[in-house]
Design a binder for these strands. Structure first.
Length: 746
DNA sequence: TCTCTCACTTC
DNA sequence: TGAAGTGAGAG
């Protein structure tokens, strides 16, 4: 068995440790452990912290490094390694001492989100892209000040239903349309130190939502590496389906280089109140009004603004004429002056002559609660900057912390002072009706290090422990309620995930499924200017969306939409009644954190699910029913577990001919314990983690690992290598690409 | 439902 | 001053 011939490495290039070549570390480690001389090693140019670069989990890295060093000391011939790669690099690959972090994320402008959540959850999407409103802003804490982090967000389907707005409420209208290609938005300031992140509100306001399937604001990740396979793209907009429900996610990745993302640990945070239904036109007036009143760009439509005045003018013009005529008849005079004055008190910025015909009394009749504030606000507006003023609707879209602007006072929207009905969502989703339930973002971490390792629990207690934390968080008043619910799925703690997880819908019959996460990378254009590895990555991006390499219909369930809808309704309706049951979409993410093979719909894909507009039909089959995720239908199912990363490597099931297929069992039987064995594949992000007792699952785990190192992938690796070379050459020319594409379609 | 234009806004 | 972000409304 040749361990190295399939592993071309260009001497002296940074490609040697490019994360697109994830097999580097395992190959190297395995070959050393097995006593093989690793010919590629001399070419291996280690970064300052090579182990981190490869995201070799510390728990694994250490024993492997011990193995390597030990092997070297006991006679493994490293003599031919060459001058550029002495034994020292081995030491260099040892994981750095890292300050443990325990990130907590606080959703900013939460009051606004709460209002948004209560009154409906519509988010407008347009062909040209529309910003999110409310803006997604978070404040982080608990980060390692000195460590660098990459912050990302993406938007995933919250369920697999299509909705309609009927009788002033959102209702399930059938099965979801084929999922759009997902993108992930990398905060333009990434990577930055924890201190930097914690010093400010992290805002994603530049993220745009579109329904344009041919959107050109996405770019492929430049690699044929199986971790990406053209499925991942980045750009400035993310594509959503209208009338579908979505859930934004926030990710914290401890990595100092964007290129390390695929092999880094993702901590994922969900804020249920940020869930929304994408629409091309507002359906719910309450949401419209909420946005008008809180979005500075929509100021023109406020009752205090000219735009809204125009509308009102038309509405009141007729009645005014009647009023004036009647008034003239009654008084015998034309009291235009007083009328005009009163009008101006309401519309200080009036410019249309027609305004003067609007009478105060009529105005109040039409909008009694607003007339006073209109006058007051108008009088202040020209002299007072936008502040949190009870007399004025605050603009929580400002960059200032919500503690200032998002206070209840700020959101004391007199237009909505009396919240009456309108809880259509509450009707549809009782679980969301509980304010407490919204205050506990779910944190899903696939941490391979840190506290997670200490949080091992007995399998049966995992779910309850999670719930306990959730309840704990809910019980905490005020800000404490925002402490994320952490669900460390430490890969090393394999056992604690075994068995049924109350509240986690483990689907039966999923063994052997490969976890696929079809989330293209969504990168802010600002990344292009960041230099370093960011530029390297960006350089290779073609101005194309991900193309397709065969949509999968794996994991399809034959459930019809009716059953699905009822199942979903049951999940949505009942989940909130049980603390042991996470909301539907949370379960999906929890499952994802467990490494279950799920599409954004929750379907399971044995092969990479790739996106293409024309392939939507194929994926429609893949948009399987939600029954597998249903907490009551699959509550006690047991699943082998995969490490979760948004960038899981989709891998075909191998025939066991690869390196690790042989190496890992050898290791397991030898010096490395099962924990290390399981972790060995974690750099590939998709290593199946079984729970310890399921030998069959372990077999599949090893198979999964094998493929990531199989000779079949060598060509991909080569391609990635050469591509990366060209990327480096093209680094400087990239920034203009997205701009061109944008300006090209005015 | 969706798309486009428009008037209006902020920055 | 102009680019870009808004919802309304027509088609």
């Amino acid at each position: 068995m040749s361990l190295s011939m399939r592993d071309p490495v260009i001497p002296g290039t940074s490609m040697a440790y490019h994360p697109f070549l994830p097999h580097r570390a395992p190959d190297f480690a395995m070959s050393a452990v097995l006593g093989h001389q690793p010919p590629f090693f001399p070419a291996l140019t280690l970064p300052p912290n090579g182990a981190t670069a490869l995201s070799l989990p510390g728990a694994l890295a250490k024993p492997i490094m011990d193995q390597l060093v030990g092997a070297a000391e006991t006679g493994i011939p490293f003599s031919s390694l060459g001058p550029q790669a002495p034994l020292r690099p081995l030491k260099a690959m040892e994981p750095e001492e890292e300050v443990e972090d325990d990130p907590k994320v606080h959703l900013e402008a939460k009051e606004l989100w709460d209002q948004f959540h209560k009154r409906g959850t519509e988010m407008v999407i347009t062909k040209s892209g529309r910003r999110m409103f409310p803006p997604f802003k978070v404040r982080c804490s608990g980060l390692d000040k000195k460590a660098k982090y990459i912050l990302l967000m993406d938007i995933i389907a919250a369920d697999d239903c299509r909705y309609k707005f009927h009788n002033s409420r959102w209702m399930v209208a059938g099965k979801a349309d084929p999922e759009m290609p997902k993108r992930m938005y990398i905060h333009p300031d990434s990577p930055a130190t924890g201190e930097q992140w914690m010093s400010k509100v992290v805002t994603f306001h530049k993220l745009k939502l579109t329904n344009n399937i041919s959107d050109k604001h996405g770019f492929n990740w430049p690699s044929d590496h199986p971790a990406w396979q053209g499925n991942y793209s980045f750009g400035t907009q993310t594509i959503l389906n209208s009338m579908h429900k979505y859930q934004p996610r926030f990710h914290i990745v401890r990595a100092n280089d964007i290129l390390k993302l695929p092999y880094s640990t993702f901590r994922t945070y969900l804020f249920p109140e940020t869930e929304f239904i994408a629409v091309t036109a507002y359906q719910n007036d309450k949401i419209t009004q909420l946005k008008i009143d809180n979005n500075p760009f929509a100021k023109g439509f406020r009752d205090t603004g000219n735009g809204r005045r125009e509308k009102r003018k038309q509405l009141t013009l007729q009645s005014m004429r009647v009023f004036d005529e009647r008034h003239k008849k009654e008084t015998g005079t034309s009291d235009e002056s007083s009328s005009e004055h009163a009008t101006f008190s309401c519309f200080a910025q009036a410019s249309s002559p027609a305004v003067s015909t609007v009478g105060t009394s009529n105005l109040k009749d039409l909008c009694p609660s607003e007339a006073e504030s209109d006058a007051e606000a108008e009088s202040k507006e020209e002299h007072v900057p936008e502040t949190c003023d009870a007399a004025k609707i605050s603009t929580t879209t400002s960059e200032e912390p919500s503690r200032d602007k998002g206070s209840p006072d700020c959101l004391k929207l007199h237009l909505f002072g009396a919240e009456t009905s309108g809880r259509s969502r509450d009707n549809a989703r009782p679980d969301k009706a509980s304010p407490d339930s919204r205050h506990s973002p779910a944190t899903i971490s696939s941490s391979t290090r840190g506290p997670g390792a200490e949080e091992r629990r007995s399998p049966g207690r995992e779910g309850s422990a999670v719930v306990a934390k959730a309840e704990e968080a809910r019980a905490l008043p005020g800000k404490e309620a925002f402490v994320p619910l952490h669900m460390h799925s430490d890969a090393a703690a394999a056992a604690h995930l075994q068995g049924p997880l109350p509240g986690l819908g483990f689907a039966p019959g999923l063994a052997g499924q490969q976890f696929f996460n079809g989330h293209p990378l969504f990168l802010h254009p600002g990344q292009f200017a960041m230099g370093s590895a960011f530029s390297s990555m960006a350089a290779g991006m073609g101005p194309l969306l991900a193309t397709v390499s065969g949509a999968s219909s794996g994991g399809v369930s034959g459930l019809d939409s009716t059953a699905m809808a009822s199942a979903a309704a049951a999940a949505q309706g009942l989940s909130g009644t049980s603390a042991a049951t996470l909301p539907f979409h949370l379960q999906q993410h929890v499952l994802a954190s467990q490494g279950l093979a799920m599409s954004p719909f929750g379907s399971l894909f044995p092969y990479p699910y790739t996106y293409m507009a024309a392939a939507a039909a194929a994926s429609s089959a893949a948009a399987s029913s939600s029954v597998h995720r249903h907490p009551f239908l699959s509550l006690n199912s047991m699943r082998p577990r995969l490490r979760y990363s948004p960038y899981s490597i989709p891998v075909p099931v191998p025939d066991g001919g690869g390196l690790l297929g042989a190496a890992l069992p050898a290791m397991a039987a030898g010096t490395l314990d099962a924990k290390a064995t399981a972790l060995a594949a974690s750099p590939a992000s998709v290593s199946a983690m079984d729970s310890g007792s399921e030998l069959n699952s372990r077999s599949s785990t090893l198979s999964s690992i094998t493929v990531s190192l199989s000779p079949k992938l060598c060509s991909e690796k080569e391609a990635a290598t050469s591509e990366l070379q060209s990327i480096q050459r093209l680094v400087s020319g990239l920034e203009a690409k997205p701009e061109r594409s944008r300006s090209g379609s005015p």
